[in-house]
Design a protein around this nucleic acid. Structure first.
Length: 438
RNA sequence: GUGGGUGUAGCUCAGUUGGUUAGAGCGCCAGGUUGUGGUCCUGGAGGUCGCGGGUUCAAAUCCCGCCACUCACCCCA
């Protein structure tokens, strides 16, 4: 259409106003993003989590090891490149980076359990579609150093609390346990043995997974594969007693908090690092991308990343874009762009200079002030004040300069009055406070 | 990687069996008001009709190719 540049495919601009992209998806305004981010931070802080910020760029090896060589993410979705002999990757998720940072900075030495949260962009080179982008935004938590089932339950509880604070209801929580890696390995072997005779009945991808990542076959949506799986060995039968006890206690805590969930033995998360408890939060009716968040326990990740000692850990990651989809579907009210308290219109060069200085001092006094920078007509400036939804407009011309009193107009009623220059800040502050009470 | 859909103004879209100068609404700018917004009236700016080729006296419209965007499968947040 035009010859100017366009944003990279699979990314999107967040503008002052919400808009609809070419696929009909509503892209929320920057004010809505700020509101959601603020709500997320607020709830997480109330649950006593502390923020951690790590770079978008990480060593490729960290992601390969942390997320797992067999995963789709590492196999085909990394934005990775080499520069001067160093292998870089734009992080596809933030758990491995957080654990890296935790180990690098010996955060365990701060004492006790570390409850961390993050919020930021991630990158995956997938084919974009509704609710799925190449640059997307995740927030999440990691509880480092706690192996008690209460940590699992708190992870889920804080996730639900964030959704609740945002106004999301009708969510579905699915829960499962994967047991220990050792027992899981036994199970994988049994599953392979069971499936091997059926290999030629399986789809191409499932055949490939049979070798590399057999657990993922459990997710299949192919009907005859599901039939084959019906008589397959069950993961639950391989999960050890300790794991089952842990799982039971997690459920007990959730019951105690009145958090509803649905057990789903088929729930196998796509990332290699999960052990024991796993869960996924869904917003039904969102279509293809209904998963808002996923998480679970990953007690072995620290060691996979080179730690000499184990750090039991549990956390979740949630997708901001998915959250917005759910908010749209639920028609939840969100704030609009902040509007100026007052628009100051100037008539003539002398007034412009006075307005420019006064704007500054009113802003110093804490007011949100707008003014004209184009030298436009009074009519145009009033129109601008109206467009910006300023509750008050102030008019400064030669009359006002001479009288040393401003004409202040209340936009809604259209009423005007004169206010002495030295009382302006106080007058406006008082009026604005009154209107903002609601 | 595999399928489907869509490309006309800033936005939403119309454009007849191909027909000469490509339109509407909204938005934007200006005037009606030599110092006053929202409503109303008038005017204006803004388009390589995604790109390239072909058919034709004539293409936004028909044909071919390409590109972009998008939805879905897979998988994930």
């Amino acid at each position: 259409m035009s010859t100017t540049f366009q944003n990279i495919r699979g990314t999107f601009d967040i503008l002052p106003d919400a808009y609809t992209d070419d696929g009909g998806t509503r892209i929320a305004s920057s004010a809505e993003w700020r509101h959601v981010e603020a709500t997320v931070r607020d709830v997480l802080c109330r649950y006593n989590f502390e923020e951690i910020r790590t770079p978008a760029l990480e060593p490729t090896e960290l992601v390969a090891r942390g997320v797992g060589e067999s995963t789709d993410i590492v196999q085909k979705e990394m934005f990775a490149f080499e520069r001067s002999g160093t292998q870089y990757v734009l992080r596809p998720e933030i758990t491995a980076p957080v654990v890296r940072s935790f180990l690098q900075h010996h955060l365990d030495q701060r004492g006790g359990v570390q409850k961390l949260f993050y919020l930021g962009p991630c990158f995956r080179a997938e084919k974009p579609q509704k609710g799925r982008y190449r640059q997307f935004h995740q927030f999440g938590i990691e509880i480092m150093g706690a192996d008690k089932p209460r940590a699992d339950a708190e992870t889920i509880a804080v996730l639900m609390a964030v959704c609740d604070a945002l106004g999301l209801t009708d969510l579905k929580l699915r829960l499962n346990t994967l047991g220990t890696p050792e027992r899981r390995a036994e199970y994988v072997e049994a599953l392979q043995d069971y499936l091997a005779p059926h290999a030629d009945e399986l789809s191409e991808t499932s055949q490939r997974r049979l070798e590399r990542n057999p657990l993922r076959i459990l997710d299949t949506k192919v009907e005859h594969e599901q039939e084959i799986l019906r008589d397959a060995p069950k993961l639950m039968d391989f999960v050890g007693e300790e794991s089952l006890a842990h799982y039971d206690e997690v459920k007990e805590h959730l019951d105690g908090l009145r958090i509803e969930y649905e057990e789903d033995p088929q729930l196998v998360r796509g990332l290699d690092y999960y052990t024991e408890t796993t869960f996924e939060l869904e917003s039904p009716g969102l279509g293809a991308q209904s998963a808002l968040a996923g998480g679970g326990r990953y007690d072995r990740l620290a060691e996979v990343l080179g730690s000499d000692e184990p750090f039991p850990a549990v956390g979740f990651a949630a997708g901001m874009e998915r959250l917005f989809l759910a908010l749209d579907a639920a028609d939840v009210d969100r704030p609009g762009t902040p509007t100026p308290d007052v628009f100051i219109a100037a008539l003539g060069e002398e007034a412009e200079r006075w307005v420019f200085r006064t704007t500054q001092s009113l802003r110093d006094a804490g007011l949100h002030v707008a003014h004209d920078l184009m030298g436009r007509s009074l009519k145009a400036q009033m129109k601008e004040a109206n467009r910006q939804n300023a509750p008050y407009a102030m008019i400064i011309g030669s009359n006002e300069l001479e009288a040393e009193a401003a004409t202040v107009k209340e936009m809604e009623s259209g009423e005007q009055q004169e206010v002495d220059f030295d009382e302006l800040a106080e007058y406006l502050a008082r009026r604005v406070d009154g209107t903002e009470a609601g």
